[in-house]
């Protein structure tokens, strides 16, 4: 055996353990999902399963519920990502400016990130409950009218965003804080000398230097927002009047309540296409940033 060949064999021996799992649990599923998407595959009518080419996609394109679900998901992303960036930035700047006690507060705001979805849902259901919830109890004691946190079409989504902010902004703040601390002191000193303090200093010096980190935060959270489901599942079940039923929940229900696996797979691919657009955007922007 030539040394080159031997080295190739050796290399693949290192790759093999991972690669086998990768093929089995990533590549094969992708192929299966592609196959399902062009099939009519209803568990409730096994006899009529069969190839339907792109009919699932055509149906999905016309599916009003899917359109509504995309609007809901987009709405969540549009509310969540900007507010997350603002809140996390405020936290990071505050933490960065703290003379002492920074690590303690950093740990405090990071803590909710450790909570599992189920516990988070249990807690916030209790807070948001219309009649017996904590928030409305406080409002009532202040002499204010109770707020229908989860049962009003226009308030339910902001309520979910608020919970998500509590849950995730600490993690994002920590990322931004690390970015801030990576900025060499001399930049701030130079800005100070130029009289660019405070707000102006932030916009003219800090923010541009943090561009790559902010970009990362925005794009990963945008991709995450398109997977919107567990938060709504736990708090509202998609209601009121489907106002919080996003794409992922609709697909999940189609697959696991309606048992229409082929149709669900087709819709998943449509969601994947949207997510991929953001993924490539990230890739492209980062490349551009790097060069």
């Amino acid at each position: 055996m030539s040394p080159r060949k031997a080295r190739a064999m050796l290399g693949w021996a290192y790759l093999l353990p991972y690669a086998s799992l990768f093929v089995l649990f990533v590549l094969v599923p992708i192929v299966v999902a592609a196959y399902l998407a062009v099939m009519q595959f209803d568990l409730t009518s096994p006899k009529s399963a069969g190839f339907v080419a792109f009919r699932n996609f055509a149906d999905a394109w016309r599916d009003e519920y899917l359109q509504r679900a995309f609007v809901v998901t987009a709405k969540f992303a549009a509310m969540m990502v900007p507010s997350l960036v603002v809140v996390a930035f405020a936290l990071a700047l505050g933490l960065n400016a703290m003379p002492r006690g920074r690590n303690a507060v950093r740990a405090m705001v990071f803590l909710p990130t450790m909570f599992t979805v189920a516990v988070t849902g249990i807690l916030w259901q209790w807070f948001y409950n219309l009649e017996f919830g904590l928030f409305n109890f406080v409002l009532k004691n202040l002499g204010l009218a109770p707020v229908p946190w989860l049962s009003d079409k226009n308030i339910a989504m902001p309520s979910i965003v608020l919970m998500s902010l509590w849950w995730t902004s600490g993690g994002t703040a920590v990322i931004l804080l690390a970015g801030l601390q990576n900025i060499p002191r001399m930049f701030h000193e130079a800005a100070s000398l130029d009289g660019a303090d405070g707000w102006r200093g932030f916009w003219s010096v800090t923010f541009p230097l943090l561009r790559p980190v902010v970009l990362f935060v925005v794009v990963t959270n945008l991709i995450g927002a398109f997977q919107f489901f567990p938060q709504a599942q736990l708090l509202t079940g998609g209601g009121p009047e489907l106002a919080t039923r996003g794409v992922v929940q609709y697909i999940y229900e189609t697959a696991f309540n309606g048992y229409r696996l082929g149709y669900a797979a087709a819709m998943s691919w449509m969601l994947a296409a949207v997510v991929a657009v953001f993924g490539f955007l990230q890739f492209w922007l980062m490349r551009k940033e790097a060069s």
Binding site: M39, Q40, D42, T44, S45, K47, S48, A49, G50, F51, V52, R55
Partner: peptide, 9 residues
């Protein structure tokens, strides 16, 4: 459901 339980498509 009626259509799909008869035949695919």
């Amino acid at each position: 459901d009626r259509a799909e339980s008869q035949a695919p498509g």
